[in-house]
Amino acid sequence: MNKSKQQGMSIIVQTVARWTKGYIFLFGVYLTFYGHLTPGGGFSGGVVIAVTFVLLTLAFGKERALSKLGKVLASVLDCSGALLFLLIAALGILFGGAFFANFIEKRFPSANFRLFSAGNLPLCNISIAIKVGASLFMIFIILAVRRVVEINGKRKLISTEFFETPEKGKSR
């Protein structure tokens, strides 16, 4: 439709993406924060958060998405999410006496309107969501930047930008 614009898809897709991207992101955050009480949790929330950036990449091209969440920032977030998770687990040794011990007070049955009704589970969920969101976006962008082009009649696959080998999702 918009021939002058090389990046991205048609204006319909772009408009819908512009309207929905915030809500999708918020839904991911909701899944993450509420995951200890309902179905959901860090992994699903992180996937939905990553999907927001995937949508941005598809609709507007990768420059727009990378300007929101850069390669370096995504890598740092990826590792720091994992480190945060390990830190919470290690704090369990300090306060709870065992690795992964739930050291924050928890109530059963869960009292409504209490922030930490499930102990440190929301904290774990948040760190996992950071890790999964960043690393899934990285995987997508690294696999997506390659194009098949024809060079001297032979089909060849080149990467439009140099990226190293992708990180793999290790979190649970």
Binding site: K156, L157, I158, T165, P166, G169, S171, R172
Partner: peptide
């Protein structure tokens, strides 16, 4: 299942990355 899906995701992304590189080398 959630754990095994995540592991499968890791293996899958590595597999796809390797197959892309293989396609780059062999065509």
């Amino acid at each position: 299942v959630l754990t095994s899906i995540v592991i499968g995701l890791g293996v899958l992304s590595l597999m796809v990355a390797i197959s892309i590189r293989l396609y780059q080398r062999y065509g």
